[in-house]
Computed example of a mutant assay.
Amino acid sequence: MRRSIIPPLIFGIVGTAILLGLGFWQLGRLEWKETMLAEIQAGIDAEPQPLPAEADPSMKYMPVLIRGETTGEEILVLSGTKERGGGYNVISGFVTDDGRRILVDRGFVDQDQRHDPRPPAALTIRGNLHWPQEKGSATPEPDLAAGIWFARDVPAMAEMLDTEPLLVVAAAAEGDVQGVQPIPISIDGVPNSHLSYAVQWFLFAATCAGMTAWFIWRISRRTY
């Protein structure tokens, strides 16, 4: 073996091994993420419980059952669905049977229903506690004149509707739903790109191995 091929050979073997290791690490992360998502979905679909007296973000996705009446006050958050296109999520003030004032994301209405009257209505709602993280540095401030918000900001919405900073996202509702379509919480939007990352690392490893083989072949064919 020519000494001149030893450095590129070592470099290629080490580089390929590192890239393969990163690919297998991403496969491990994929398995972990899939397990975590399955646990979250199982929690979302669990038997609903009464609304806890003290709730905090550690209870995110907790299934609950509430009964009471909407206040007739609401916030419309710009939204959309694949089936119905653009529209709004209706966030209503809600007074439970035991007198607590909370927020309820009742679901979706399309553009034509934006101005429909939605007076106080008695509802029984099965849903999940949620603390969405939708407001970023680029998110516009609510257009209060038009009554349109661009993200579900629980503390700000609670202040606007004079409720606890507590949001229940409806999965199903019984009573006068007033044309609002519940949109249950889902893990569909949770990113899980570990498989594509693993494929990329394996492709890099194959490229590294191929380039190393080609480089060594070129060296071996040199004539002096």
Rank of each mutant, 00 (worst) to 15 (best):
F11Q: 09
R221V: 01
A121T: 04
V77T: 06
F11L: 15
V95S: 04
S4W: 06
V169C: 03
H115K: 08
D97T: 15
L78V: 00
D56S: 07
L30C: 07
V190A: 15
P117F: 12
E141M: 13
M157Q: 13
L129G: 10
S58W: 06
W201A: 13
A145P: 05
L37I: 14
D45Q: 05
V104H: 14
N89T: 02
D176Y: 01
A156L: 10
V14L: 15
P8V: 04
A42C: 07
V95Q: 08
A206N: 00
P63Q: 07
R29W: 06
T16M: 08
Q200D: 02
I91Y: 11
D162N: 07
G28F: 13
P142R: 01
G43F: 07
A209V: 08
Q181E: 12
I102L: 14
L144E: 15
R152V: 13
F108S: 06
M211C: 06
P165C: 12
A205I: 07
G87M: 06
P184S: 01
T96R: 08
E54F: 08
L166H: 07
A170R: 01
T124I: 02
I13F: 11
G127A: 06
Q111N: 05
L51E: 03
R101P: 00
D188N: 15
F150M: 09
D188G: 11
T35F: 03
N89W: 11
H130W: 12
T70M: 03
G87L: 07
M62S: 03
W25G: 01
M211V: 02
P191W: 14
I6V: 11
A206R: 08
P140I: 14
W32Q: 09
A209D: 05
V109R: 10
P52A: 02
T223H: 10
G15T: 08
D143C: 08
V177L: 07
V109I: 15
L51R: 10
A171C: 03
I18D: 13
A53V: 14
T124W: 02
